[in-house]
Structures are given as C-alpha cells and as structure tokens.
Design a protein around this nucleic acid. Structure first.
Length: 655
RNA sequence: GCCGGCAUAGCUCAGCGGUAGAGCAGCUGAUUCGUAAUCAGCAGGUCGCGGGUUCGAAUCCCAUUGCCGGCUCCA
C-alpha cells in the first residue's frame, strides 16, 4: 500500500472546492497548514479525509477530499477523550512500572483505561496519576503513529510484557489483519486504531473520577482488572458544568429524598432489594395506581388479580424454568407439591383466558394487573428503588387475532406515550430488541413478531434503534427509555409480542368457521415497575412532586394556638373535597413551620392567623415562595381543583 | 456473584489504641409568636454482627452481613 506504482502524486479536494496536487505520502498537516491562518494552523487538531477523521500525520496516499478539523467540531471530543486515556496509561506506566495495560476507550463524558496491577489503586494513587497526566499534558509531547506488520508489532508487545495487547493482536491476526497501527508519545506505546490528537498538549479539561473492577473483555471468567475512570471536556467550563450536573444528581438521589420525605425504606432486617412503603410513599403509589387503573378502564381494559405463587409445573410449561430459572426463587413444597414465586404475571393471565372457551367475537381482550413479582438479582446490582428483588409491574396482556395486531400495538404505543407525558416525561429513546440467543418458539414466529413491532414504530414515525439479541425469551420487544430532567435515561416501558406462550399454553379462540385458532399475546408495561418509576419520578422532580402527585398537597399552618379550631376546620373541608391536607398545630413559630413544610416540598402552605380566622379565610403560600393572598376555603378548593389538572403533564384531567 | 470503599444516637457526621461526642430530630418546660430554624433543660449508643491481637479495641487484624461506586445483568 505504501508503493502506489504509477502515480506518485494525488489530487486532493480541499474545502471551497480547491484542488491541489500533492506528493504521495505527504502528511495531511503539511497539506492543510499552509492554507490556514497562523492561529488556525496552531489549533488544527485532526483532518477529515473523505469524511473520515484522521491524524494530522496521516499520509495522503490516494486522491481524496480533505478538510481541517478543529477542537469542538463534531466527533473531536471523543478523539480528545481517547487521547486523554492514552496519557493516563502513560502516567500509570511511569508511576507503576509493573502495570499492564488492557484497553482504554472514550466513553460518554470521558474515558477509562483498564490496568492489571499487583495491588489495588487507591484514591491517593489517582491523585498522583492525575498530577502526572497534567505534567505530560503540559509538556505537549508529540503523538506518533506507526503502521507495522502484525508480527513485528506482536514482538514489540511481547518484549514489553503487555499480555493483553498480545491477545488483542492475535485476535486481529485471526480476523485477517496484516498490519496494525501503534501510537506513542514520550516512551509510551499503545496498540490503537486511532486517530489521536497531534500532541499531549491538546487534551482539554479532565479529571479522574474513580477506580472500579472490570473483567478483561467484560467476561467474568476472565481476570478482574482495575478500571480508572475520568471525565473530559473541551474546556474547564464544560467540565465544571458536568461536575455540577453530577452534584445535582446527588442532590436528587431518590434514596436520599425518599428518606427525607419519609416515602420508603429498605432494611437489612427485611432483606436487600425489598421495599417498605411508608404512609407518604404509599399515598404517592395510590395516586399513581388509581390514575393508572382509571385510565385503563377508560380505554377498554379489564382488571385482574392473580396469586403470588403457582405450581412449579406452570413454570415448566411456560418455559420459565428452562429460560428464566436463574432469576427465580427456589421452590417451596406445600402438601408435597412444589410451588414457586412468580417472576412474571403472564402465565396467570393466560390461565384466566383459558378458563373457558373464547370466541373470535370476544377479541381483543385487554387485561391489566398491578402484579407484584419477585426476581433474584445479584446483590451487587441492587440500587434503591431502581433495582429491587420484589416489584410491582403495571402489567397488561392483550389477547388478539392476527388482524388486530397492528392496531393493538398502535393503541399500546399511544397509551404509553400518553401516560409518560402525564407524568412529565416527553423525551425518550426507543429500542427494538430482537431475538436473544436462548429463546422459545420458531424463527418464523420471531420474525413475524419483530416485523409487527417494527411496522408499528415505522407507521408511527417514531425513531428507534435496534438492540440486537436483547428480546425476552418468548418474544421481541419495544423498550422505551425515558429521559429525565438531567437527561439521564431510564428503562420503563416495554411492549412485547408473543406467539410462543400462546403455543405452549394452547391459547386459542373459535374462529368464524368454528375451528380453533391460536391467539396472539401482547405483553406490556408502561411504567415498568412502580418501584423504579417512583424512583425516577423522585429524581425527575427532586421530590417536589407536581400538585396532583404530591402525597401531601397542602399543610395548614397556624400562627398561634388561637387558630387551632379554624385550622382543623379548614383541613377537614379540604379533605372532604378530596385533597390531601395536613395541619401543623405545633407550638412553633410560623417561620419554622414554613421552613419544615418547604423542606418536605409540600406544594401549598395555608397560613391562618387571627385575621384569616376572623374572616373565615386562609392565606396560601406556594412552595416556590409566592404569597398568593387571602382567600376563602371555597376559593382554595377551586385553586386546588385547577392545579390538579394543570399539574399533570399536558394538563390532562385528574384521575 | 466479582473488584474497591464504607458501617459510631432516629438522621447527618466527629473521634481512629486508654473505657463515646456535636448538630438536627425526640421528650419536658418556658415563650403565643405573621411567610425558610424561639430559648432552656433532659433523655438517647452492646460504636453492623462474630472472632482474634493487646494490660486495654469504636480505633489494629480476620471472617461475616448490609450499603456505596463500578463490572455484569435488567422492570
């Protein structure tokens, strides 16, 4: 490839259509720099060759288009982060000579590099590494790129004892590669595809954030390496903004707020991953669940209740014991029969369906249940409400005929997006998960089901990504991950088309011709798990729930104990109108009562003093600090009624 | 499950070889007060649990449980 033969020059198309004849092998820097201002030449970071980012040292080896790339241009921050990872690796190698390097890519917001070292890195080590990185950055060592035959490269890493790099090279070799590129700076050398920034002085603002164990190649059979994480941005301002966002996320942590607002607890005595809902949290759930049930009934769903355990045979037939056993709790024997706790609700809904013969006229049947399931999760994965062992799914199963399928998926998508909007989520990412490695049913069924889901997404004009192999064992699915106010993504909704369980359980209906036909099942959950959804809501709203959701919507505050009777009367009348109102009659100053109500984020504080009492009125103060002005109880009821509707996303009707 | 860190009063945390401390919350009393903390007093802890080292352990070591940050996995 280095000897082109006939032509020793190439035509390079530059921005603005300029064409230049360039000698074969000229580095792109030499092509671009003379055509830039001094300042631009200094800032030049990379080049785009025929649309692909390349190093400045990259040689021109054919006719191509070429444009300069500066920091901040699309795609550059990833390159900068990647180069920062290399600088970190250099620092680690210098400070800890025995360390072996594995891989070090750019990730969202930063980078990491995996190392194998005789002892764990400590926070103090990280400080030293970061210091050394700054020195390397300051020295602005040029970063070199070299292409070598794969055997030669292998020898280099063998001589350096970099066993992980050797493994990578052997893999590349098996994949048919004959040469690889090596990048280096000031004595450090790494196997890397590149591209990289021209020198170590071009890193931007970075900070090491932590160290964590990670398996070599993500496989738990492999040795555990130490992964050092860092964040990196173009400049200090962006880095500071990012760190501020992390702080904000910490302030919004649902575990913290859940404790402060007395919503729920998780206790060692009860067990990990098991949630105790305190009165306020239970009230929040009730509001969510009532809304959910009303909305479903309004839309033609029927409610089901099913048991928590079932005979083991059921799980055998459903395929759970073959494909889902590692998530299920051990069987218990009752009167010599084995039972198991449910990890899913579907077999029960099927049993209801199969409790009698179904006619084609009955379909579609839409059945929903707030079904509590238990799944074994490895201890290390549990996290507050977000990842638990016992949770309530807002589950539903639609049983339908093939000719219903498109309409059903459409209907479910519509309902899903509606519900998410009501709770204040209008940004989400949609994924289509296809057949996993272990699955039940035939490939044709999987294809049909996948096509149905994909067709619905296309018909709705919704953008989506394919998540290969991430379907459930019985069918493909659409997952909707909502984005919260900090732009973090949470998986909640899931829609799954299933031809397989109907086959296993012989779920059928009698068609027009009097013959049985197999029904199709659509599984779906909108909020996914009530636990997780509440967790997401807490963080999304930082505990300051919109009025319709707030477990306590208002608190009546007295100025002195002379107003106690009036305060109780106000509370009583508001409660009678369906609002969740408390009264704070403590012998404390008004300021203190306000402060405490504020801290637990109650939407309205209703101040009653002598003046209000005399006039039969109250004086609301909003959570945001506005004193609205004295009003009668009737006016307050009107205010709250309005607020109930308006505080729902999209101003939907209250439940 | 794996790697690393953490575990002290209800909560937030200090103490890090010589027999346990603060603020808030709680209780008692005084104060009757208008839009983010009234004052005083009292009470509260087998320092996660189990071993060990030591004359002596909250403090050092080992094991264990739980939590936190990751890996992996998912609603």
């Amino acid at each position: 490839m280095s000897e082109f033969g006939a032509s020793s020059t190439h035509w390079v198309t530059l921005p603005e259509g300029e064409r230049a004849e360039i000698r074969h092998g000229t580095p792109v820097r030499e092509v671009l720099s003379p055509r830039l201002s001094k300042r631009q030449a200094r800032e030049l970071l990379l080049a785009r060759m025929d649309g692909k980012l390349v190093d400045l040292a990259h040689p021109v080896e054919r006719d191509c288009s070429l444009e300069p790339v500066f920091p901040g241009d699309p795609g550059t921050i990833e390159i900068i982060r990647h180069s920062t990872a290399h600088v970190m690796a250099q620092a680690v190698k210098e400070l800890f000579p025995g360390a072996k390097v594995a891989i070090g890519p750019a990730i969202e917001n930063g980078f990491y590099y995996d190392f194998d070292y005789e002892r764990p890195f400590t926070p103090e080590d990280l400080v030293r590494i970061e210091e050394r990185m700054r020195e390397i950055a300051k020295a602005a060592y040029p970063i070199s790129r070299e292409v070598l035959g794969i055997q030669k490269a292998r020898e280099i890493f063998v001589s350096r004892g970099e066993i992980y790099k050797i493994e990578l090279i052997d893999e590349l070799s098996r994949a048919g590669e004959v040469e690889v590129s090596l990048y280096g700076q000031s004595g450090f050398l790494d196997l890397c595809r590149g591209p990289h920034v021209p020198d170590t002085g071009r890193l931007g603002a970075f900070k090491l954030t932590g160290v964590a164990g990670a398996y070599w190649r993500g496989d738990e059979r492999n040795p555990m390496l130490q992964r050092i994480y860092g964040v990196s941005f173009l400049d200090k301002k962006e880095l500071a903004a990012y760190l501020e966002r992390i702080e904000e996320a910490k302030r919004r942590d649902h575990r913290r707020i859940g404790k402060d607002l007395d919503l729920f607890s998780i206790q060692e005595e009860i067990g990990p991953g098991l949630i105790l809902w305190h009165p306020k949290g239970a009230m929040l759930r009730r509001v969510i669940e009532d809304f959910w049930k009303d909305e479903h009934i309004r839309r033609g769903y029927d409610l089901l209740y099913t048991p928590h355990i079932a005979r083991r045979d059921l799980w055998k037939r459903s395929g759970h014991l073959d494909f889902y056993a590692e998530s299920m709790y051990a069987p218990m024997v009752i009167d010599e029969v084995s039972y198991q706790i449910k990890p899913m609700n579907c077999p029960f809904h099927i049993a209801v369906y199969n409790s009698r013969r179904r006619s084609y006229r009955e379909l579609p049947l839409r059945w929903c249940e707030l079904g509590t399931v238990y799944r074994y999760e490895r201890t290390g994965t549990l996290h507050g409400l977000m990842r638990v062992r016992g949770f309530t799914q807002d589950d539903a199963h639609v049983f339908c005929r093939p000719d219903h399928l498109d309409t059903m998926i459409h209907e479910i998508l519509e309902l899903t997006l509606f519900v998410l909007r009501v709770f204040g989520f209008d940004r989400y990412d949609i994924y289509l998960s296809t057949r996993p490695e272990r699955f039940v049913g035939t490939e044709e069924n999987w294809e049909r089901a996948t096509a149905a889901l994909e067709g619905a997404l296309k018909a709705e004009g919704l953008a989506y990504e394919i998540d290969p192999g991430e379907g459930v064992f019985y069918g493909p699915k659409i997952d909707i991950k909502i984005r919260d106010c900090l732009d973090r993504s949470w998986q909640c909704s899931t829609i799954q088309v299933d031809f397989n369980l109907p086959e296993r359980f012989d779920v059928n209906y009698i068609g027009e011709d009097g013959h049985p036909r197999q029904a199709i099942m659509v599984h779906r959950a909108l909020m996914g798990s009530i636990e997780r959804f509440v967790g997401v809501l807490i963080e999304h709203y930082a505990g300051a729930f919109p009025f319709w959701l707030a477990p306590v919507q208002a608190v009546v505050l007295t100025v002195t104990d002379r107003q106690d009777a009036w305060a109780v009367e106000v509370q009583k009348r508001l409660k009678a109108s369906g609002f969740r109102v408390e009264a704070d009659l403590r012998n404390e100053k008004l300021g203190k009562k306000i402060r405490e109500a504020q801290l637990v984020k109650i939407p309205y504080m209703l101040v009653v003093g002598d003046k209000e009492m005399r006039e039969g009125r109250l004086n609301p103060r909003s959570r945001s600090g506005d004193v609205i002005g004295s009003m009668t109880v009737e006016e307050c009821i009107q205010l709250f009624t309005r607020e109930s509707t308006q505080s729902m996303g999209q101003g939907r009707r209250p439940a």
